[in-house]
């Protein structure tokens, strides 16, 4: 534990005396040591060591048992549900989130401000409350369930239910990444395209859309990453049937309830690696997005 933690610490801590830092060590603004000390200590204790615990526990369990734990039928079924439905939800959010960002920045309509404010609701509303509300709404007797069940669409206690919950919690990401880029977008470029004879659709597809792609992908990746880890809202609406509507975080919880800590940890390890990979993708996308912004800037 200690070596790993120490290793993590040196990674997080910036090299204390690189050239630039040494020059700036007689810096004018005080408090570098104190604020940096608090930041790094707190991050190490609260984030790095606990995260390392998952990996170290996993590394102690032997390859074969690990493999058995992370590829059991129930777990593999849960990956399919979690990643598959998260992907669908993120794609839905990419499409509708784009439309929402577009109408909020480009059009004026009654109660636009209120609609704009409402977009952040999934950030502020506790996930358990969201799950409860969506279940009430989409259950067979709910306001919206009543519309779908006669059509043969089971909106609650099914994968559709999981899809609804994951769409809800991922909703703000695409809107809030695309919106600022769209606001900064130079309308004169569009005017130039139009004056050169491009139709509105052509202008949109070959002038506006390319500039928005990095932001759109970033929002998509954020919504996807958020959906993959989601637990609270899903367990209310999914029905939690093993092999069918069980998400991977729930599998971890069930392992824990059976005191099967090694298997819970192994599955958690797989999820963490997936999350970190997505975080990396998001960072790369944002860098790409910024470089485009600067090039155009």
């Amino acid at each position: 534990m200690n070596s790993e933690a120490a290793n993590q610490r040196t990674q997080a801590a910036p090299d204390p005396k690189p050239d630039k830092a040494r020059r700036l060590s007689r810096r004018v603004i005080p408090g570098f040591g104190l604020s940096m000390g608090i930041t790094i200590t707190w991050l190490t204790l609260m984030v790095l060591i606990p995260l390392a615990a998952v990996f170290i526990r996993t590394s102690g369990m032997g390859w074969e048992e690990f493999w058995r734990a992370v590829t059991s039928r129930q777990v593999v079924a849960s990956y399919k549900v979690t990643f598959g439905v998260s992907l669908l939800a993120a794609m839905t959010n990419a499409v509708f989130g784009f439309i929402v960002a577009w109408i909020l920045t480009r059009y004026r309509f009654p109660m636009r401000k209120l609609v704009d404010a409402l977009v952040d609701l999934p950030f502020a509303l506790p996930t358990a409350v969201a799950g409860l509300a969506l279940t009430a709404l989409y259950a067979e007797t709910g306001w919206l369930g009543q519309l779908f069940y006669p059509l043969g669409i089971e909106t609650a206690y099914s994968r559709t239910g999981i899809f609804i919950a994951l769409t809800f919690i991922g909703l703000p990401f695409v809107v809030r990444t695309v919106q600022p880029v769209l606001e900064d977008f130079d309308r004169e470029v569009e005017e130039a395209a139009a004056s050169l004879g491009a139709g509105r659709l052509r202008t949109f597809v070959s002038v506006v859309l390319p500039a928005l792609v990095p932001a759109l992908l970033t929002g998509f990746a954020l919504a996807f990453a958020r959906a993959v880890g989601e637990y609270g809202s899903v367990i209310f609406i999914s029905g939690n049937m093993p092999m069918r509507t069980e998400i991977t975080p729930l599998v971890i919880v069930k392992h824990l309830e059976n005191y099967n800590y090694p298997h819970a940890t192994a599955v958690a390890c797989v999820m963490l690696v997936a999350s970190f990979a997505m975080l990396l993708v998001v960072n790369l996308l944002q860098r790409w997005s910024e470089s485009i912004g600067q090039a155009r800037g």
């Binding site: 910036p14 690189p18 940096m36 984030v47 990453a225 880890g229 729930l250 819970a264 940890t265």
Partner: peptide
């Protein structure tokens, strides 16, 4: 302040956003 490794620090700061709440508890 300006220092090396700032973007790494910010990434570590964002880690809790990327971790499933269930794993956070675990």
């Amino acid at each position: 302040f300006t220092f090396r490794g700032k973007s790494l620090l910010v990434t570590v700061l964002d880690l809790p956003f990327a971790v499933s709440p269930v794993i956070a508890g675990l």
